[in-house]
Design a protein around this nucleic acid. Sequence first.
DNA 1: AAAAAAATCATGGTATATCGGGATTGTTCG
DNA 2: CGAACAATCCCGATATACCATGATTTTTTT
Lengths: 210, 210
Amino acid sequence: MSKESKITLAIVDDHPMVLEGLKSLIQSQENYQIYSFTKGTAFLDFITGNEVDLVLLDIVLSDGSGLDFCKSIKKLSPKTIVIGVSNQAERSIIFQLLQNGASGYILKNADSQEIISCIKEALNGKVVLSKEVQEIMLTQPVYSYELPKITKREKQILQSIAEGNTSAQIAEKLFISLITVETHRRNLLQKFKARNMIELVRIATENRLM
Amino acid sequence: MSKESKITLAIVDDHPMVLEGLKSLIQSQENYQIYSFTKGTAFLDFITGNEVDLVLLDIVLSDGSGLDFCKSIKKLSPKTIVIGVSNQAERSIIFQLLQNGASGYILKNADSQEIISCIKEALNGKVVLSKEVQEIMLTQPVYSYELPKITKREKQILQSIAEGNTSAQIAEKLFISLITVETHRRNLLQKFKARNMIELVRIATENRLM
DNA sequence: AAAAAAATCATGGTATATCGGGATTGTTCG
DNA sequence: CGAACAATCCCGATATACCATGATTTTTTT
């Protein structure tokens, strides 16, 4: 496909300076047709009526999670190759993104060569991870092979705990018994094998479960 | 000074794509002499032997805090104007940066016009905040006008707590009495007026006190 | 060297969280 | 329709955190 027509590439990031940087980095080395978006929803609209070969998708967007956008993109346009872009690299986030159909994950501190080569390899159907991401995947300890699933109520309570509320305050706010709140706490601690709520909140935050 | 010689501008950011983006955004509109760095220490070396009119300084750098670098820069070269660049805007961080001698703070989601106008105004001696930063300064609730100061030992203990350790575990690790650890906890809670350690860890994290 | 701040340890008490077992309703889904 | 799951509630016990107050020693600052 690279011989017949120009490759179409999209960048979705809500930081204009990152957008501009990626555009300039890529254009300086390759001749692609580049579209850029600052909103995930704007890109979803675009892809409904246009073909895009590859998209560099920021994971943290103002109008939603990149994880969800990735899923939507692959649904609307399965051929489009998605590469996640982010400045953090948490093992589980990367897994989640790949499970949602992405072909790669690069960190914002990757240099230009890395970015270019990742794009090229992804276009050739490979799964690409930037250097540092690879290291993290190898070295970061595996908390649990599968992240525990969390119910609606548990999520709600966990959020409230993370804000600093005590069980009693939460019970009052949610109109349930103190005992119920404590049961949820106990279940959460067990699910995550955490020693206490501080550790639990940390794990949940790192994995964006709240 | 703008008439005689080119204005010298530096960008310090450990994300090549942000670096490139800023450079390209600025160069497309103004004719400055631009130097870029991915390490704060590299820039400190540079400024020891060179004059720089203005520096765009990322607050989160791999080799140290932008807050500290700002202080060092103003010490080595008081004339150099420092503008903080970051993707988060916590009230207290902005205050801290300004107290360390910075002339402005812009968010990474600022658009090109905003960036350019901020740079120009800062060069004219003004204190500049990008739009969204201004809003945050106005709307974000003021936890405490001055952030409590935290001692070495307290910081150490707070970090250990944030990892999920109990007081007993911390006492053992630091070879001090359980009672001492609990005293530190109590002092920390009082200083920050926090209800419990979960809230305290949240506040400390938001303000990069660990 | 004196004053201030930081780090240490202490007593005794209250509150909250954590643990280990149940049990009862709904809801959801194969 | 049952079987899993979610959400709710309960008892009794222990562990840990939090509160009030105070004191000694070491370190830092003036």
